[in-house]
Design a protein around this nucleic acid. Structure first.
Lengths: 330, 330
DNA sequence: CTGAAAGCGCTTACAG
DNA sequence: CTGAAAGCGCTTACAG
């Protein structure tokens, strides 16, 4: 930085202010500083600015596990939007509750990042407060909360779109294959999607058979187990609404093994539009987590640059009808 | 840190040395410093140590795209091993060649990380040199190179395992459904797997029909297109060895649409043991990218702590026979 | 084995 | 609008 200052013939302070776009620098000086900085390939040291001032030039993304399609897609969206803005992305997986506590206890101690974006994690007010105290901006992607920007789909609506599709095909015995969050007792998506399921059923005047509402751990394995449970029940469902495409795919495996034809005997629908959904011809309710990540990044940038966080609204979901749903067998 | 120094009654320099395990501190003092630091919840500022000394406490993982199963699995392995060691993980996707050039040009300018772990990227000697000049340690996961530690499977062997399985079933018209790397002209895996395919065929004395060797972009879409090309050929293959499970799944979709039964009419095998392989009953050659990430992390830690990098050897792969391979139709 | 001092490259009041 | 100076929290020669 001193090279730049010397070359332009101004002080370090002026260079610093000019480059960061602070007020109180003449346009003339600012121009010159920018030009010289570019010519000299000057890159500010994040270490130094972090030490001296406030900004670290880093954003942490916090999620349950990375190999999930959802989490990695949102992360990619964040990365694509944050990097051009000169911010680096720190990835932190919080596996279990103890780890989660550790993270929120230590992270703000040393402000290693300017902002934290949590993916599909419902923050407690204490956790938010802790981050805030540490001077860290907070944004949620894929979950809801009070007092900080949240970018998410309407889970209840997505569930209704799925269940309405089944209802319109003529199904009444519609099972809900939900998941339980192993690591986060408060993950809201499950609750909201169940609410959407019940709301759609109620609106259609179709009673819910509680034997058809089952919950297993997430992923395809849980889906397979949940489907096995449904198959061992007294009366089979004619359609299954799964929490996600992965769960739906697990369910389809169980159906295949049980020799049950999809969709002739049982229809299956998921949520996500996972790349595999197209591959396996799975009917689903699509969402776009990469776009959601991008929007979360923009909100984060707003916060970091002192602007009011833009309102990105609720992210849309839409029914994608493929080959795993059909009218019920007569 | 000054709190710790004051409490113990030593200088800042001693605290710094004691905590970092440097030589020249009596065991007695070191103990005391450690104890007080723990009691006071002291966490060193990475900004300050980065500025003053050398270490930033950060490792960058560089990959093509994150939503890939392979990349995110390796990253998870890295994260699990690096975090307990007090290192944060910076994620950087390099999408296109221009971006790649930009990364290697700017990253070393400001040493933002202590080490770079590249995933499935074949580094050029110049890129390695550039990182080295910047004082950044280099480790490769899933690719090979000279002059820095590489943790990888034996791609040629993996291909041989797959093709040998098909040969042993009695197949001779074995197609290779390879991929072309859009972003990295030198990705070695494709070349090595093709070599393995040819070596296995040659060893069995089976001639390769060059019409059965096709390359498309990666992912399931490319697999579907490649399979379409094979299906439009004069003589069909009796078995398909796909570059990866994703490619294999794409191929299976094309086969399904064409009304061809797997494995009765055509056998299919992939590489990876992607979670979906189990779900779709796909025969494959399994690898463990999470373990590979962990091993890469350990090598990285060796380098950062001034030890010689341990030799983790070549990572094993093993044939997993499921339902998509069978003897050829008579 | 330990300490005093300089310095890493910035930012931020405080003056002007 | 601009600058001189202090300071962010460490590490590293240099002495002792």
């Amino acid at each position: 930085m001193s090279d730049v200052a010397e070359e332009v013939g101004v002080s370090l302070a002026t260079v610093s202010r000019a480059l960061r776009g602070l007020e109180g620098v003449s346009e003339d000086t600012r121009e010159k500083v920018r030009e010289v900085a570019a010519r000299l390939d000057y890159i500010p040291s994040p270490e130094a600015s972090g030490l001296a001032g406030r900004s670290t030039g880093r954003v942490a993304v916090v999620l349950h596990d990375l190999p999930s399609w959802y989490g990695s897609s949102v992360t990619v969206g964040l990365e694509r939007e944050l990097r051009p803005a000169g911010l680096d992305l720190l990835v932190r997986c919080v596996d279990d509750p103890a780890d989660r506590v550790r993270f929120f206890a230590t992270m703000p101690l040393r402000r290693k990042v300017d902002a934290v974006v949590v993916i599909a994690i419902a923050l407690t007010p204490q956790e938010v407060a802790k981050l805030r105290e540490g001077g860290v901006a907070v944004v949620a992607a894929g979950s809801h909360g009070e007092g900080f920007p949240c970018v998410a789909i309407d889970d209840e609506l997505a569930a209704q779109q799925a269940v309405n599709h089944l209802l319109q095909l003529g199904h009444e015995r519609i099972a809900l294959l939900n998941t339980v969050a192993a690591t986060d007792r408060a993950w809201q998506a499950q609750r909201d999607r169940e609410n959407g399921y019940r709301a759609a059923m109620a609106a259609a005047g179709v009673p819910v058979d509680e034997d058809l509402v089952v919950s297993w751990s997430g992923g395809s394995r849980g889906g397979a187990q949940g489907m096995d449970q449904l198959l061992s029940g007294r009366r089979l469902p004619s359609a299954v609404f799964a929490f996600s495409d992965e769960v739906a795919l697990g369910a389809m495996r169980s159906l295949r093994r049980a020799g049950i034809e999809v969709p002739r005997q049982i229809s299956v629908i998921g949520i996500d539009d996972h790349p595999l959904a197209e591959l396996t011809d799975l009917t689903t309710v699509a969402q776009d987590p990469v776009a959601l990540g991008r929007a979360s990044a923009q909100v984060t940038l707003d916060l970091l640059q002192g602007r009011p966080a833009r309102d990105v609204g609720t992210f849309p979901t839409r029914l994608v009808v493929r080959g795993t749903t059909a009218p019920p067998a007569p």
